[in-house]
């Protein structure tokens, strides 16, 4: 279990991380979101002991994380790097040996992992001869092959196409199922929503959101309404509490001031019986992210 408690880090006059706290249990995935410069990478670097926090504590299974714990960590930095002239198998073996694995064990497992991540390339290919997407997958394998108990992924989805993103997602889920504690950062709220058990959003180093994805969304109330019915745009706008209306073909997307407005619209829309769509939801994570990130500018 990773416990982060009241972490503060300043660089000169700038506060990069301001009283950050969260806990990740084994078998749990935590998404760390926030704009560029919000403090995500600084958080990771403090967990990895690259930076020393000004105050606060980081504990792994109850004790501070030290060089002795390096073998249980899997870390994927935001900007990827591999040795271009090295063979895929040698590359993975080197990183895995640095995590304490035996060379023979790594070599035996490489084909299975290349298969799992659908890497198009042979273990004997040079890294530079692979496509960018495949290089990224090789890097992921190098990060995960030793089955780390604490996985730290900095923007793992960036640059991946939807197919590869889902390959990565199942890789992350496989580690979660084996009991790893996983923390990752992302800009893509779709992925965060799909796989995170827990979410922390940072803004200028401060935590603005903290909780499970569902709980966070529900806390904003079901103020989004997607409707396809006999009611026209004008009729909908006349309802008290409709703040915004956007038409997508026959479907209208409404932003409500209050969830109860939905009940009145439902009654009016179903006066004549069947309607194809009535969907009242909390705002998506993406909308919450924009809302929170833009709060200061607004």
């Amino acid at each position: 279990m990773l416990e982060v408690e009241n972490l503060v880090k300043t660089f000169g006059t700038m506060t990069a991380v301001d009283h950050e706290s969260f806990t990740i249990k084994p078998g749990e995935i935590m998404g760390l979101i926030g704009q560029n410069g919000a403090g995500k990478t600084t958080t990771f670097r403090m967990i990895l002991n690259f930076l020393t926090p000004d105050s606060g504590a980081i504990r792994w299974n109850g004790h501070p994380l030290t060089a002795k714990d390096y073998d249980v960590i899997g870390y994927l930095p935001e900007e990827r790097g591999l040795y271009p002239k090295m063979k895929v198998a040698d590359q993975i073996t080197y990183f895995a040996r640095l995590r304490g694995m035996k060379a023979a064990d790594v070599k035996a497992q490489i084909p299975e992992w290349l298969d799992r991540f659908q890497v198009k390339g042979k273990p004997t290919d040079k890294v530079k001869d692979l496509s960018k997407g495949n290089q990224q997958k090789v890097q992921l394998i190098a990060t995960l092959i030793h089955m780390p108990k604490l996985v730290i992924l900095d923007e793992p989805f960036s640059g991946l196409d939807p197919v590869n993103a889902s390959v990565l997602q199942s890789g992350i889920e496989m580690l979660r199922d084996s009991g790893s504690a996983i923390i990752y950062s992302s800009h893509d709220m779709g992925n965060v929503e799909a796989i995170s058990d827990h979410l922390v959003m940072l803004k200028n180093g401060k935590m603005v959101l903290n909780g499970t994805v569902d709980a966070i969304r529900e806390s904003f109330g079901r103020t989004k309404l997607y409707l396809e019915s006999g009611l026209s745009a004008e009729q909908l706008r006349d309802f008290d509490g409709v703040e915004k209306l956007v038409a997508h073909g026959n479907e209208f997307e409404l932003t409500l001031a209050d969830p109860t407005v939905g009940e009145r619209i439902f009654a009016a829309a179903t006066v004549n019986g069947y309607i194809p769509e009535f969907r009242q939801q909390p705002p998506t994570l993406d909308e919450i992210f924009r809302m929170k990130a833009g709060a200061e500018h607004a």
Partner: peptide
């Protein structure tokens, strides 16, 4: 080269 290609960060999270 290791630093420029960010391999260094992975190395430093594996070994002191």
């Amino acid at each position: 080269t290791e630093k420029g290609s960010r391999i260094m960060e992975i190395l430093l999270s594996s070994v002191s």
